[in-house]
């Protein structure tokens, strides 16, 4: 792309994609902003005119707002912690030469191909059901009373389900990163007197830092908006109402589009705050 000509040609070629993406993003964004300043109740009178910042004030002052933000952050944080830690361990395990390696790798990746709705349903009915779930049977086998997972330990259960879904993604990225580690570096560290744990801490982990950053950033984007898992399991009850779920309730259950749109704008703000924090903490790993 060195010459003037090829540069302008490149611009022309890229224009359709850029315009499409821009429209894709800008139209919903403007519509959200537009509705957030309106009192708009589709089933109860429709468009009832401009109301200024009313919706914004009502959304934050509702008793459900702050708990939903906290829940969102707990789910995101919990899933990130579990997937990164287990992902690193699994990646190391899968990197060892072993019998049936290809098969094991495919099995580990498999959960990622299961749709969120399906996996949540499978967990809810097959594992976590207090009467006929597998976990209930296990508990009964040891003579304990089965836990009613989705009501008694609702938040940890959802974190577990979502972690199960995202662990393959983290493992896959971290596995490719581990495979690119020069084995001579590990051997050099071994000669330098570093035992296995220190080799991990001083060589492997720093090598993985960039991949871990990528995993954290990508997962955060998707986890901030998880919905299906909550919808099919608890339906937002038992303290599992995330910000996106709250917005869903405002728009569809209360049929208040204006209020929901204001919530949407808050969700954008929350996502940006989280993004800024993340970039501060882990973003420097992406440089160089």
């Amino acid at each position: 792309m060195a010459t003037q000509h090829s540069r302008s040609a490149a611009r022309l070629m890229m224009a359709p994609a850029v315009i499409l993406l821009l429209g894709w993003m800008l139209v919903p964004l403007t519509m959200t902003l537009f509705f957030s300043f309106k009192k708009y109740l589709p089933l109860r009178g429709g468009d009832l005119g401009w109301v200024g910042f009313d919706n914004y004030v009502r959304f934050v002052t509702s008793s459900a707002f702050w708990p939903s933000v906290v829940t969102t952050l707990i789910i995101v944080g919990g899933v990130l912690a579990i997937t990164v830690v287990l992902g690193v361990l699994l990646a190391i395990l899968l990197n060892q030469p072993m019998w049936g390696q290809g098969m094991v790798r495919i099995l580990v990746i498999a959960p990622f191909f299961v749709m969120p709705t399906v996996s949540a349903l499978v967990w809810k009915n097959m594992f976590m059901d207090p009467n006929y779930g597998l976990l209930a049977h296990l508990w009964k086998f040891f003579g304990a009373t089965p836990v009613e997972w989705l009501s008694q330990a609702s938040l940890p259960s959802i974190v577990m389900i979502v972690s199960w879904q995202w662990l393959p993604f983290a493992t896959l990225i971290l596995l490719t990163a581990i495979q690119s580690l020069d084995s001579e570096q590990l051997e050099a560290a071994e000669m330098d007197g570093a035992p296995a744990l220190k080799r991990f801490g001083y060589i492997t982990l720093p090598h993985l830092s960039r991949a871990i950053t990528v995993v954290i950033l990508i997962q955060t984007i998707f986890l901030l908006s998880i919905f299906a898992e909550i919808f099919v399991t608890t339906g937002g009850a038992f303290g599992t109402k995330t910000l996106s779920y709250l917005i869903f309730q405002r728009v569809l259950e209360s049929q208040n589009v204006g209020l929901g749109s204001a919530g949407g704008v808050y969700a954008i703000i929350l996502a940006n705050i989280v993004a800024i924090f993340l970039m501060r903490i882990v973003g420097k790993n992406l440089d160089a």
Partner: peptide
């Protein structure tokens, strides 16, 4: 005896410096 305890130092063809 494990490599660390042999008291030998090795210089690798790729140098194997710790990049970070």
């Amino acid at each position: 005896v494990p490599p660390a305890k042999r008291g030998l130092a090795m210089v690798f063809q790729s140098y194997a410096l710790y990049p970070h």
